[in-house]
Amino acid sequence: MNTAKDISQLYNSLFELEAKFKKEAVYPIHKQLHFSERFSDIYEFLVSKVDCKGKTILDAGCGVGFGSFLFVKNQAKEVVGISVSIREIERANEIKTKLKIENCQFQLASFDEISTSFDLIFCVESLKHSLDIQKSFTTLLDALTPNGQLVIVDDFFDGHENTISQQLKENWHLNSLISENDIQIDDANFSISSEDLTPFMRLKSLFKIYTQRLFFRLFKKNSPYKKLFKGGVLLDHLYTKKQMKYKLLIITKNR
Rank of each mutant, 00 (worst) to 15 (best):
D59V: 04
R202N: 14
S48T: 03
T211W: 13
Q9W: 02
F200L: 15
I192G: 03
K23F: 09
F21W: 09
D196V: 00
L248H: 07
E180V: 15
F71I: 13
K220I: 01
N171Y: 09
N74I: 05
S85G: 00
L140G: 02
D59E: 09
D59K: 02
F118K: 02
K53M: 13
L214H: 14
L234M: 09
G159R: 02
L150I: 02
Q167K: 13
E125S: 04
G231H: 00
E37C: 09
L203C: 08
S85L: 00
L46V: 04
T139N: 15
F71G: 10
Y239H: 06
F35Q: 12
V64S: 06
D236C: 05
S205W: 08
V153Y: 04
F15K: 02
C123F: 05
S223H: 03
K227E: 03
V79W: 00
G159P: 08
I178D: 09
P199G: 04
L249D: 10
T198Y: 10
L108E: 10
K208T: 13
L174W: 01
M1I: 13
N175C: 03
A19P: 02
K5V: 10
L248F: 10
L17D: 00
K128I: 14
T252W: 08
M1A: 10
N74P: 12
D155S: 11
C62G: 03
S36K: 14
F207P: 04
E180Q: 14
S176D: 15
A92S: 07
A4L: 12
I152V: 11
I183R: 05
L99D: 14
K77H: 11
E16D: 14
K227Y: 01
K230P: 10
V79Y: 08
I152R: 03
L131C: 08
V47W: 05
N222R: 10
K253G: 03
N181T: 12
T145R: 13
R38M: 11
I152Q: 01
L197H: 07
F69V: 05
A92F: 06
A143W: 05
Y43A: 09
H237M: 13
R255H: 14
D182C: 08
D186I: 12
I7M: 06
F39C: 04
I209V: 04
Y239D: 08
I251P: 02
I192K: 15
D196N: 15
D187M: 11
K169C: 07
C123L: 10
D155I: 05
A4C: 01
S205Y: 05
R38C: 08
K55Y: 07
A143H: 01
H30L: 06
S36L: 07
E18H: 15
C123Q: 11
K77C: 07
K55L: 03
V47A: 04
D236I: 00
V79P: 11
A25Y: 14
D132N: 15
E113C: 09
F207N: 11
Q184L: 11
V79H: 07
G81L: 02
K53W: 08
Y239P: 01
G148A: 03
K204H: 14
H34W: 08
K23W: 07
T163I: 11
